[in-house]
Design a protein around this nucleic acid. Structure first.
Lengths: 346, 346
DNA sequence: CTGAAAGCGCTAACAT
DNA sequence: ATGTTAGCGCTTTCAG
């Protein structure tokens, strides 16, 4: 499929209105922008009538160019559908609204290339500020990022020091969840979405927390219980199924995301495991969905509200104060465990 | 909290680069836009180096103004978080990508005022085309809508004839679901989110289908089974709970949305009702979530893919062909029932 | 109260 | 292969 071309058909301009109403464009502008003191009531009404008659509409692109600002903040997420991003968008939109800024959401596509593309200078220049959820790019990629548009980064990747960065305590949260399961008597905790090597991705960090909790409790980590998978519902479902099929025994599941946990619950139900009696389950993120699945999901609440607050205030500050003289800040709220029905009290 | 003001700090322009590289702005433009034939390799490299040195970035606002197009289409939805809108956005983004258009998502807030605001000319002028999910505005409101930006409307409200309109077969789908329940032996079907009067909203249309199925089957509609509620998870949960508390007997639940149905499932589990043995449940929308809840949700698939296809192709056509001479089109796919585990075979 | 001039940063069209 | 001219539609500034 080809690109869509063609430019907007003419459209009525401010000058058209001005000419027709027998005034200068400036007066039309004043009317439109409610600078009442500068226009007589009579003229105002005439201009308004002409605007209506001609069906004139302000061209935001032109206004933005002239004013050097857009009133919009961009949020780039890997995908729209995962509950986590949708809820994040919702929260941010509320907060930015309070500052007179609209939030507009774009999709990066989670590939490194797509993510960088979203961050390319052009895209950013359409916004007064930008929030980027970094899942794929590395520090070097980000280094090239626009310096003209204030940016707040979210996500666990290491980011260049010049950026404000808001992130979850992945290690701490995972450790908290794992410790809770261990205290509840679990000894064979499957880790859904776990990863072995490095230290950069969400998978890896949460895996570290899982391991740390085991070490602290003197319980060995069994490799066969650490199954790598993506963080969608379907992924959690498939991974859990596989575990069962392969005959690997486990008495708990720690899913790296609530979505994954919900998939796991489904797989456990299908294979006749009772939750939490046979298998306990803990997720991560505190999605709204988790409260309504049966049984309701115990999860790690990573400080979603605090993160949204931080993202908003950091960005608003940068936007308001021109040059980024203020040093970059890092915000990482304290996670907490939300006990519901998929676990037993220790 | 006050508005955020202040304009973008100067920033390096194309002229800056040109001057520094000892060429004209036009040459810089040619380099940036890859018009290779028009620039010697030597100059190209020099310009590129200068761009790098100065950290220059194209100003999209200026480019958009000059070119009269933005390469973006807007999607306005009442809220980001409900699964339905997130999935819609996802689907649309895929399709528009194929046409070289980025999808950017904005939130209207579901109030009539907010919705109209989103549709105000200024907002629209930032996009090559716009998709609006109409939930609150009426035909008269929409009549005032921009004529300069191609718009496709989605949603069940009556809309002015000049707009392309994509909608679900709400009545047919609801009737299909209800008939299925009736055939499966249900005689007291609770309608979650039902409405009495009018004919405009999704609630009302789906209620009509529910009633039509009852009439056709000669089963009376009991008013106490039609409970009005919003379409979120929590709403379905609360409504179902209330039904139980009030001691109203029912052997099936038709929830107007999958989200509502998922809430209902939770409430039924809490109150000890077995699904589908004691109570059958059907939703509407075919959200991904429905496949993974326990038991998996039977639902009406309203033709999501076809709707996304239609929205995209209608809009792309309008964008490509200047004046809207083509008559407006209405697309309403055939719904189908997806049987899963919350119902019994008739 | 109203208007004229200037220019935001870019690119199409036409020179050279 | 490169430069010049003009202007997208708006608003800031300053003059009437």
């Amino acid at each position: 499929m080809g690109k869509v071309e063609g430019r907007r058909w003419s459209g009525v301009t401010m000058s058209d209105v001005a000419r027709r109403a027998g005034v200068s464009p400036m007066t039309v502008s004043n009317v439109i922008n409610g600078r009442a003191q500068r226009v007589s009531e009579q003229t105002r009404l005439r201009v308004l009538a002409t605007i209506d008659e001609l069906g004139y509409q302000v061209n935001m692109t032109a206004r933005n160019l002239r004013m050097g600002r857009t009133g919009a903040v961009g949020l780039a997420v890997p995908a729209f559908a995962p509950g986590y991003y949708a809820q994040l968008a919702q929260r941010l939109a509320d907060r930015f609204d309070a500052h007179g800024l609209r939030l507009v959401v774009e999709r990066t596509g989670a590939s490194r290339a797509a993510e960088l593309d979203a961050l390319a200078a052009p895209r950013l220049s359409s916004y007064d500020g930008f929030v980027l959820s970094v899942v794929a790019g590395d520090a070097a990629d980000l280094e090239k990022l626009s310096i003209d548009t204030p940016v707040v980064l979210i996500g666990e990747r290491a980011v260049p020091a010049r950026f404000d960065h808001v992130l979850m305590d992945n290690v701490g949260g995972a450790r908290m969840a794992t410790e809770f399961l261990l205290r509840s008597g679990a000894r064979r905790i499957a880790l859904l979405g776990g990863a072995a090597g490095g230290a950069e991705s969400m998978h890896e960090l949460r895996t570290q927390g899982y391991q740390a909790a085991h070490e602290a409790a003197g319980v060995p980590v069994r490799d066969e219980l650490v199954v790598g998978c993506d963080f969608g519902v379907e992924d959690g479902y498939t991974a859990t199924h596989e575990l069962v099929v392969r005959g690997i025994a486990f008495d708990a599941v720690f899913a790296l995301t609530d979505s994954g946990a919900i998939g796991a619950l489904r797989a456990l139900a299908e294979t006749g495991r009772k939750v939490p009696d046979d298998v306990q389950v803990v997720g991560f993120d505190d999605l709204d969905d988790g409260r309504f699945v049966v049984p309701a999901l115990t999860t790690v609440e990573p400080g979603n509200a605090e993160m949204a607050d931080a993202i908003c205030s950091l960005l608003v500050e940068r936007i308001a104060s021109r040059p980024d003289q203020a040093p970059a800040r890092v915000v990482m709220p304290e996670p907490r465990l939300v006990e519901r029905e998929t676990t037993r009290r220790p």
